[in-house]
């Protein structure tokens, strides 16, 4: 565990908590893509099945349980408790165009053709594109609440920090996982446009609105 990995996890945890608190306190999920949140719940479910088979550390287990719990709670708030505030008309990304290719690819390109490994690979590929419905929704509504941009910033930052963690681990431990690295690079690239808007607008106190 190196500092980049730890700050990456804390950034991820911050994003998940920010979103959950935003919806809970404002009692509204306006501007939030329920589809992306369902994809994230799928990512955690398929990735953390090893909770049932392997114990790595208290940190590892507790973080996985928190991630799964918060992601399902967020999906519940969006589709059940605050369903009336869910903006379905703008959350129209065709997620089947993500899940099907990702599912196929996880069967073709993986480290080991075992159920747990294929599900892990599926979760890695899915996480890389899971934010697309949310980014698509923002491009359709043309704006995003500031708190939502903070959520996206920490969410994008977490995998960018993981990339640095993998450089660190390759250099010091000779460890690298090509599947996680390639997917992580794709995932982080998808945030670049948002990062630019976040730094040039939100950090200057302006509202994030498109077109720029």
């Amino acid at each position: 565990m190196n500092i980049f990995r730890l700050t990456g996890d804390l950034s991820h945890l911050a994003a998940i908590i920010i979103l959950l608190l935003k919806i809970w306190k404002s009692r509204s999920c306006a501007g939030i893509s329920g589809k992306s949140q369902i994809l994230f719940a799928m990512v955690f479910t398929t990735r953390y099945l090893d909770l049932l088979t392997a114990y790595i550390s208290l940190y590892n287990t507790s973080m996985k349980i928190i991630y799964i719990g918060c992601s399902y709670a967020t999906v519940y708030l969006i589709y059940a408790k605050f369903k009336a505030t869910y903006d379905g008309n703008h959350d129209t990304f065709r997620v089947e165009f993500l899940v099907v290719p990702v599912g196929g690819l996880s069967f073709l390109v993986n480290h080991d053709f075992s159920p747990l490994e294929i599900l892990w690979t599926f979760s890695i590929y899915l996480e890389a594109v899971a934010i697309l419905p949310q980014l698509f929704m923002i491009s359709k509504t043309g704006e995003a609440e500031t708190i939502t941009t903070h959520y996206l910033f920490f969410l994008g930052l977490y995998r960018a920090l993981y990339l640095i963690n993998w450089v660190w681990r390759f250099y010091f431990e000779g460890f690298f996982d090509m599947i996680a690295i390639v997917a992580g690079v794709v995932q982080t690239i998808l945030y670049c446009d948002f990062f630019y808007l976040y730094v040039t607008k939100v950090l200057k106190g302006k509202k994030l609105s498109l077109p720029a």
Partner: peptide, 10 residues
């Protein structure tokens, strides 16, 4: 081989 390294990352 990868799979004998526990997936300690989240």
């Amino acid at each position: 081989e990868l799979d004998d390294i526990e997936k300690d990352e989240l």
